[in-house]
Simulated scan of single mutants.
Amino acid sequence: MADLRWVRPEHLHSMFEVDFRGFGWSNRAKVLWSSVILAILWVIWIERNARIFRDVYEDLDSIWDKVCFLASLWASVDKSFKDIPLFLIVRN
Rank of each mutant, 00 (worst) to 15 (best):
Y57I: 13
E10P: 00
R91P: 00
S34F: 02
I40P: 00
R51K: 12
S80L: 01
W64I: 04
V36L: 07
R21W: 07
E17I: 14
F20C: 09
L38E: 13
I63H: 08
L38P: 00
P85E: 05
W64A: 07
I44N: 15
M1L: 08
I84W: 01
W6Y: 03
R28P: 00
V90H: 03
M15Q: 13
D61N: 14
S72D: 01
L88I: 09
M1S: 09
N92D: 12
K30Y: 03
L86K: 02
A75H: 06
K82V: 06
S35M: 01
S72G: 08
W25E: 11
H13S: 15
N49T: 08
N92K: 04
I46E: 11
V77T: 09
W74K: 10
A75W: 04
V77Q: 08
I46A: 12
W42S: 10
N27R: 12
D55G: 10
L70N: 07
A2M: 10
F81V: 05
P85N: 03
H13Y: 13
R21V: 09
W74A: 03
V7K: 11
K30D: 04
I44V: 15
D78E: 03
H13I: 15
L88N: 10
F20G: 08
I46G: 05
L60W: 11
